[in-house]
Each structure stands twice: as structure tokens, then as C-alpha cells.
Write a protein that binds this DNA or RNA. Structure first.
Length: 581
RNA sequence: GGUCGCAUAGCUCAGCUGGAUAGAGCAUCUGCCUUCUAAGCAGAGGGUCUCAGGUUCGAAUCCUGAUGCGAUCACCA
């Protein structure tokens, strides 16, 4: 059920038939021919740019082509009116019945309305969050988490086969630091007093971990050498942290499909295998890097390192995969990890990084291109910073001041729905202000409540209708006679609702879930506007106790709005609310 | 200095991968609760889309350069 797609199809068919009758040249590219709703509704329901797109290719005047197309389309019974406008737009007005008939179909499709197959079941891996397993998720990760999850939902809705994945950085030195910190908590649990020196994690969230280790091991490691307890404590600490992180994510409604351990790459030869793959292509060498351009770090010195020739694949410089002491850099397991993703036969990879990781984009893309022989594309989305505000003042977090806000704190204070919606009302590549007071304000300033309220209002109407003994179950609405919709402002809403499938496809194509949020806001706005018209114009109210047929057709429209809001909120990961009091 | 991103109303931001007279919210001003939820609606004012070139039927959108802001920049993850 996508009227825009139908008309687009119709336009393309007409163009093809003009080609076969030689009215148009044969070799034309229709790729950029679109059918969309014109901004100004006086220009009709839909508008196509076909004539202008093709004018140059066909070496004809736009209006000439528009005229040919018009003559082709004018016989179609679905189209009530058609005209050429401006530089060559073809403006179509569909017959009203087309719009009316859409409503029962939408109600019937319900949760499936808007679901698209443009993804063609292609396998997409979305890697996001991937926060270090050294503590709870904090606010800085939240945006990436919400964006990644919503993007995954969106792609799923658009017909992709999506895997949500979290890469656990459990291989590096920071895990030793974590294990040592846990050890301190373990000592503490055994009655010793401890001191957290620089380079350890003093967070209280490790206290229970220390206690559980005491339960498991008693005091056997209190006097022991580090070598004895470190491996055990590492593993236990990582497991505990991941449990913490998983439940943090769950509080935002996020569930990963795969948790992939960096550590699992070590000692199995998998890093070596991936690097051999690159080596075989002549992309690995021993060498020296040029000093960074511009101002030189004070302690810079030339070092011989094992390097990946990422500059051959668009990176600015080659990148080290081994440190000067022979250890892998973080980049080496990352290469192996992505090699593994490639071997798992994904068609497309998406990584969500914070803006502070922008510097790794080129090298990661280079690695994937090299490893997959340019066959698999890696897209990296950067989420910009979230600036926190409290009482209108910028709110600075610092570990030392102890006012570090965890995701859990945030969700407990403002709720999952608000957090998610607000974070999605911005393009991912623009910074976002998050004002604690504003998001909690239940006003029209707050888009979450605005959209939720529209949904709740619809529910309220349906409830009232039931009280008035009108059967408003979906089955009844599906068979409603839509002739009760008389007013153009009702048709206006229907048109907006019918844009939903097209919007899903566009948002998915651009990987921009925020478009869903904005669309829902617009839809809610139109619904509220329509609602209020019922005040002055009783005929526009939904319930007419003296006329069930009329009520049903209007209620079906309202129901279709609720369906779209529900489906849209589903993509954003926000719960619709039946009632707001 | 290199790289990436951003620059649209007083403020916060959309702008449908180049379309018709650039749109919302907040703030300011004016109206609307005996009515299906006023957490709402209707209306007014507010613009050199940072600047300069370029591409073409047509540019806020694409390209080049400048300016400003943010992130990042061997050896950490």
C-alpha cells in the first residue's frame, strides 16, 4: 500500500510506452524521476519532475515531454485532474475515492503498514555502542545507542535483514586496569582498606563485583601475586561489566543480537590470518611514518613499525598495526573483527561511532575495502556530542567531581521514551542540546508529549465511540463505508498518512531515523488541528450518534493516524501511550 | 597546520539525496475551554539560507575557495 510508489510506477510505464511508440528516444535514464507531494497543496496531490529530468537527455523541451506524458496519463481513471505547471512539473490530482479506499487497507495492514521491501532481505550489520566494558554506560554513549537501535529498527522495517552487534573491547590494557580495580574491591570486601591510585577505576559499581569474588574465592588471593589472580579477575570483571551494560541497554529497550569479543580474536591466529590477507595484497610493510603535519608533539620520534598501507584506499597516511614494542595496536584486532564480519557474508556494514572517533573512519573503511576486494561497503555514521543542560546552564561532567551521569541515571530521571525521542529529533551529525528541565516539561515545547498526546486522543475518541455503542474494532473499521468522509481537511490527513510508506523508504535509504520523528510531529500537528476544527464545526467531529456509517468512516481515518504513529514510534523505540492524564 | 562535520528567523532546529512563494517550535503580540482531553487550536510579526565564485532550465541543497564554530591528529582504546 504505497500510493506514491503506484503512481511512480504508472509514470514510468507511461514513459516506457512513449518510448516504444518512438515519441521518446530509447536510451533514457529514469533514475531521478520522482513522484512526490508538492509543498503547496494547490499544486495537486502529487507532482513528477519527469519532463524536466528527461528534457536534456531527450534533447526536447520539458513542456513538450510533459505534454506527451499528460496525454498518456489523462485516460487513467485514478487520476482526476492533471496539469502542466511551472518549468515542466506535471501535477496530478487523484480521484478522491483513491484516497478514501486507502484507509480500510491501512487499518487492515495495521502494523505492517509502511513496511517496505526495498531492503530485499539484504544482510546488514549495524555495530553500535561498543563501549569499553570497564563500567556502566554513560550519557556519552546514549546517543549512539539510541541512534543505532533506531536505525536498525528502521532498516528492518524497510525490509533489510538486520543484525545488531556490540564489539566488546576486552583485549586491551584497560581490562588489566579494570581487573586491578576489581582486585582492590575484593581486598576491601576482605576487610582491607585500599587506595585507588591513578589508572584504576574507583567507581562504586565495582563494589559488588569485589564482593562476589570474595564469595567465590574467599581470601585465597589476598596475599597472592598478581599473575595468579589477574586472568581470573579479568574474566570475571568483564563478565560482570557486560551484564551491567546489557541491563543498561535494556533499560533503553535495546537488545543486541551479537556480542563479539575482541579477546576471542587473540591466540587463535585470526588476527594473523586477517593480516596475511592484507599482506598477500602487498599492503603490509615495515616502515617509518612521517611526523604529523603542523605542530609537532614534543615527544615525537621516528619509530619503525608494522604499517598498513591504508593510504592506497583513501586514508591520509598509513596506519600502524603493531606498536614499537611489538604488541598489536587496537587497529589490528579491529581489522580481524571486520574481516570476520565480511566472512559472515553481510551485504553491508554500518558502524556507529562517536564524533571523537572520526579519525578512524578512513582507516576502517580502507581495511574493509582491502579485505573484501571492494565488494562490501562499510558506512560509518558519526554521532555528534550531546551537550547537557541543567537549569539552562551547561552541565559539565567530570569523573573527579563525581557528577558523571550514567545512562541509568538518565533513564531513571527522564524515562526511556523521552530520552530516545529527544535524541532522535536531530540529525546524527549535528550536535544536540539535552536540557533536563525542558525534556521533562510537559508542554508543546516537548515533541514527545505532543505526538503521544495525539495518539492518546485517538484512543480516547475510540473509547467514547464504544460507549456510544459504535463497534470500532478494526474489523468493523475495515469494512467501513468511507463515504462519510466529506470534508477536504479529512482528505488532507489521509494524504499525510499515505505518505508514510514513502517516508520510511526515504529515511531508510538515507539512514536517517530522525525523519521519522519529524514526520510524526507533523502528522500529530495535523491531527490536532483537525481535532480542533470539530469545536466550531460539529460535522467534523468523529462521533455522530445519529449516523453510525458516518462515524465509522471518520473513526477509520483516526485509527489510521494512530496506526502510523504507533508504527513510527515503534521504529524510534518509543511506547505509544493509550492515555495521558 | 592536516582531516571530518556543522553554518537557515531573536533562540533551538526541519527542509523529502537540484524543484514552484524557504518551513516548524520557543520567545513576542491577538483570539479560542457550557463542546470527542486547552499537554490543544486559529492568527500576526520576524529571512541577503555565513561570504565570494562556479555548474544549469532552476541552487539553502552539488563543486571550488574564504570566514567562523565543533571533533580529532605517531606511540592510547
Amino acid at each position: 500500500m504505497n500510493l506514491f510508489a503506484n503512481v511512480h510506477e504508472l509514470v514510468l510505464e507511461s514513459l516506457a510506452s512513449l518510448q516504444s511508440s518512438r515519441a521518446l528516444p530509447a536510451d533514457l535514464d529514469f533514475k531521478n524521476v520522482t513522484v512526490e507531494a508538492p509543498r503547496d497543496s494547490s499544486h495537486g496531490d502529487m507532482s513528477t519532475n519527469a519532463a524536466m529530468i528527461l528534457a536534456k537527455q531527450a534533447k526536447m523541451r520539458p513542456r513538450e515531454i510533459a505534454d506527451l506524458l499528460l496525454k498518456k496519463l489523462v485516460s487513467n481513471t485514478q487520476i482526476e485532474h492533471i496539469e502542466i505547471a511551472g518549468p515542466g512539473f506535471l501535477n496530478l490530482t487523484l480521484s478522491k475515492s483513491i484516497w478514501l479506499e486507502a484507509i480500510p487497507q491501512i487499518v487492515k495492514l495495521n502494523k505492517e503498514f509502511g513496511r517496505s521491501s526495498i531492503g530485499k532481505e539484504k544482510r546488514v550489520n549495524v555495530e553500535f555502542v561498543s563501549a569499553n566494558p570497564t563500567g556502566p554506560i554513560h550519557v556519552g554513549h546514549t546517543r549512539g545507542a539510541v541512534f543505532g537501535d533506531a536505525l536498525a529498527n528502521l532498516l528492518d522495517f524497510a525490509g533489510y535483514n538486520v543484525t545488531r552487534e556490540y564489539y566488546i573491547n576486552d583485549g586491551g590494557a584497560q581490562i588489566d586496569a579494570l581487573a586491578r580495580s576489581v582486585y582492590l574491591r575484593y581486598l576491601e570486601a576482605n576487610g582491607n582498606s585500599v587506595e585507588f591510585i591513578e589508572g584504576t577505576y574507583p567507581g562504586e559499581y565495582l563494589i559488588p563485583v569485589g564482593e562476589s569474588l570474595k564469595e567465590g574465592f574467599g581470601d585465597v588471593f589476598v596475599e597472592a601475586d598478581e599473575a595468579e589472580w589477574l586472568p581470573k579477575f579479568r574474566a570475571h570483571a568483564v563478565r560482570s561489566m557486560m551484564e551491567l551494560i546489557e541491563s543498561d541497554l535494556l533499560s533503553l529497550g535495546i537488545k543486541m543480537d551479537v556480542f563479539y569479543s575482541e579477546k576471542s580474536l587473540y591466540g587463535t591466529g585470526r588476527i594473523e590470518t586477517a593480516l596475511e590477507e592484507l599482506s598477500a595484497k602487498g599492503l603490509i610493510y615495515e616502515g617509518y611514518l612521517d611526523p604529523p603535519k603542523g605542530k609537532l608533539p614534543e615527544d615525537w620520534e621516528p619509530r619503525k613499525q608494522t604499517l598498513f598501507r591504508s593510504s592506497e584506499y583513501g586514508d591520509d597516511v598509513d596506519r600502524p598495526i603493531k606498536k614499537s614494542d611489538g604488541q598489536w595496536t587496537y587497529f589490528a584486532p579491529d581489522i580481524a573483527y571486520h574481516y570476520d564480519k565480511i566472512s559472515r557474508k553481510f551485504d553491508h556494514l554500518i558502524n556507529i561511532f562517536g564524533a571523537d572517533h572520526g579519525g578512524y573512519v578512513k582507516r576502517m573503511k580502507a581495511a574493509v575495502r582491502a579485505l573484501s576486494n571492494d565488494e562490501i561497503t562499510l558506512d560509518i555514521k558519526l554521532t555528534q556530542l550531546v551537550r547537557l543542560y541543567k537549569n539552562g546552564e551547561p552541565f559539565k561532567m567530570s569523573k573527579r567531581a563525581g557528577n558523571f551521569i550514567s545512562l541509568r541515571d538518565l533513564v531513571e530521571q527522564v524515562g526511556s521514551d523521552v530520552t530516545r525521542f529527544v535524541m532522535l529529533t536531530r540529525k546524527n551529525d549535528a550536535p544536540l542540546d539535552f536540557d533536563f528541565d525542558k525534556v521533562l516539561e510537559q508542554s508543546r515545547d516537548n515533541p514527545v508529549f505532543y505526538v503521544q498526546y495525539a495518539y492518546a486522543r485517538i484512543n480516547s475518541v475510540l473509547k467514547k465511540a464504544r460507549v456510544a455503542n459504535i463497534n470500532v474494532c478494526d474489523g468493523s473499521l475495515i469494512s467501513a463505508d468511507m463515504q462519510g468522509v466529506e470534508h477536504e481537511s479529512e482528505v488532507y490527513i489521509i494524504k499525510k498518512v499515505c505518505e508514510w510508506p514513502r517516508l520510511v523508504e526515504l529515511a531508510a535509504k538515507h539512514n536517517e531515523p530522525h525523519r521519522v520523528a519529524f514526520y510524526l510531529y507533523e502528522l500529530a500537528s495535523e491531527f490536532h488541528a483537525f481535532w480542533s476544527k470539530g469545536k466550531d464545526t460539529p460535522s467534523l467531529r468523529f462521533i455522530h450518534e445519529d449516523n453510525v456509517m458516518r462515524s465509522l468512516s471518520k473513526l477509520a481515518v483516526a485509527r489510521s493516524v494512530a496506526i502510523v504513529i504507533s508504527n513510527g514510534l515503534g521504529i524510534l523505540g518509543v511506547q505509544p501511550m493509550d492515555e495521558m492524564r
